[in-house]
Design a protein around this nucleic acid. Structure first.
Lengths: 333, 333
DNA sequence: CTGAAAGCGCTTACAG
DNA sequence: CTGAAAGCGCTTACAG
């Protein structure tokens, strides 16, 4: 069974492909096609199950009704939830999303941008890695809408949506201090991306503002792609060597590794030892005891991202660049 | 800056677009293009940063080097992990993956197939919902490779990769029985898909084989799209009303809700009350006490799926349909 | 060893 | 009210 083309429909209806095309694209009225012809063509389309070839349409029009979503890692629940929400919302507006993970690898990120570019996606939603500034600027020069989220790139002039990482981190530390903690550790990663740096800055500033000396020794930077068992070992060392009474984990997967480390050490979380995780996770609510977490407003982030990109897509006018910073919530458990 | 076309390259190199096309597609030798021309064209391509328009290529060749992945829900960690593995492996072979969630909605699933079809994806990897048999058969009639995974559709003659859900469920119940449990409950969903039915059958058969009377009252079927709070209430009722000493949860998200229910009831998991979850989740290892889980071999499933589809894609010959059933492991914690 | 030309399936400016 | 024709950027059978 050959797939049908617009020509087949035109032949069947006894009209030109121009007429069929106008009808498919809702321009029938505008082009004053007669009611009778419209009805006839629509019927034939329906009963034949004809679907226009989007590839051909894209080649001709230069756009695709597809938005490219580039994230760090789809298996991280923060991203998979965001992806799901964005997909949902875009779908309702007639846009499809295609997504792919960079694994924080600059080369792969560039590859993905190229792939999306050569597929003529209409717009880009990106949680960027450092090093792709140029590629993104090239997209912008090409007049493609780009929305960054989760982490900003200071060398790129475009829209950004993200949580206020500095403040969320600052407040977490402040809540430790209010509870009388003084030896507060930070477990973070060594990737040099803005949202991680902000979390570190918030940690440091909160200590300083409360007259607690900042010490490098209480900050553990886990190497990004390292094996989890190794990370757990490093955390165990940290927890054993210093008299720490509280720890902020800068990502949810670090917190999960940290909980495993504590379990192995048989160290109880409680009045003597408090924990906050950055980015919530199902683990934390169910954990005994429950773990406090900084919760980014996923729904709001996804909504804002979609809103911004749809605006861009519908108005050809270049809008003012917006940086939307959304407060995160500290869920105390 | 206009994007370059093959024509621009041809003009710059002073050759025809035919020649450029042959070189791009590695057919230079075969078409005996002279070394000098090859070198020159390759240099121009490199320095100009020219990337062939994949849309045009797809329109012409009818394929896309893209594999469509259709899953139930990307925010479920079972699927997001599989997706990540499949993406990785496909990427290494030069294929891109585009994926999208059906949310177990037949209409959305059909829509997605249509979208992928009109984008001319080369092959399909699908965790199907019931009701899309016809659509999949249409793809097969169109000679497109289709690999089903996680759940099979009996009315569709194609490749399938999945865990042995019946046996895994059977063994879980058997392990309860060995521990002396007799009042064993099953919490499952009401969606009528093969892998869920198999888990139920395994549960029932194990009871029967061990001379334990099967009772409907010990089986709770949670409505698929229902609010979690409601599910938790129903589970609390089950746990309170019967003297249950063990429960198998048929999915990991049900198990998570179940753990929340138990927490609310202040009911301890231990010698008097055992729990096994189907599909592992980070929650379970960290939970106090740790929760046993049926672990599907994600890596193996992903590997097999990719292998099968790549085989199909490279050999135009229609291979024998394979049904690969992979044993799942019960991780006792 | 290389090129002119047809054609993939659409959209749209132009003509009538 | 409707259609013929150009063109989007490629690939490839054919010719030389």
């Amino acid at each position: 069974m050959k797939t049908l083309s617009i020509k087949d429909i035109a032949v069947k209806a006894g009209v030109s492909i121009t007429t069929v095309s106008f009808i498919i694209n809702g321009k029938a009225k505008e082009k004053s096609i007669s009611e009778a012809v419209i009805k006839k063509v629509e019927e034939i389309i329906k009963e034949s199950g004809y679907k226009p070839n989007q590839i051909a349409r894209s080649l001709r029009t230069g756009n695709s009704n597809i938005i490219g979503l580039i994230i760090e890692d789809i298996s991280n629940s923060f991203f998979s939830r965001i992806a799901r929400l964005i997909e949902d919302k875009a779908y309702k507006k007639g846009y499809k999303i295609i997504y792919s993970s960079t694994e924080n690898d600059v080369e792969k990120a560039k590859d993905l941008i190229n792939m999306f570019k050569s597929r003529k996606v209409d717009g880009y939603i990106i949680s960027p890695t450092k090093g792709i500034e140029e590629d993104i600027n090239a997209l912008l020069a090409d007049n493609k809408p780009v929305i960054l989220f989760d982490r900003n790139l200071s060398d790129v002039e475009t829209h950004y949506v993200g949580a206020d990482h500095f403040k969320a981190s600052y407040k977490s530390i402040e809540s430790f201090i209010k509870d009388g903690k003084r030896k507060i550790a930070l477990v973070t990663t060594d990737i040099d991306v803005e949202q991680i740096v902000e979390r570190f800055d918030g940690y440091k500033q909160a200590l300083i503002d409360h007259q607690i000396t900042y010490s490098d020794e209480l900050v553990l930077k886990i190497h990004f792609n390292q094996d989890e068992t190794e990370s757990i070992e490093e955390m165990k060392n940290l927890f054993l060597s210093k008299e720490i009474d509280a720890v902020l984990f800068a990502t949810n997967y670090l917190a999960i590794s940290g909980l495993k480390a504590l379990k192995q050490l048989n160290k109880q979380i409680g009045d003597d030892f408090s924990v906050i995780a950055y980015d919530d996770h199902e683990v934390f609510e169910l954990h005994t005891p429950s773990i406090s977490a900084v919760q980014q407003p996923l729904e709001e982030i996804a909504e804002t991202v979609i809103q911004l990109i749809l605006n861009q897509l519908s108005s050809k006018a270049k809008a003012e660049n917006q940086k939307v910073i959304i407060p995160a919530k500290l869920i105390e458990r």
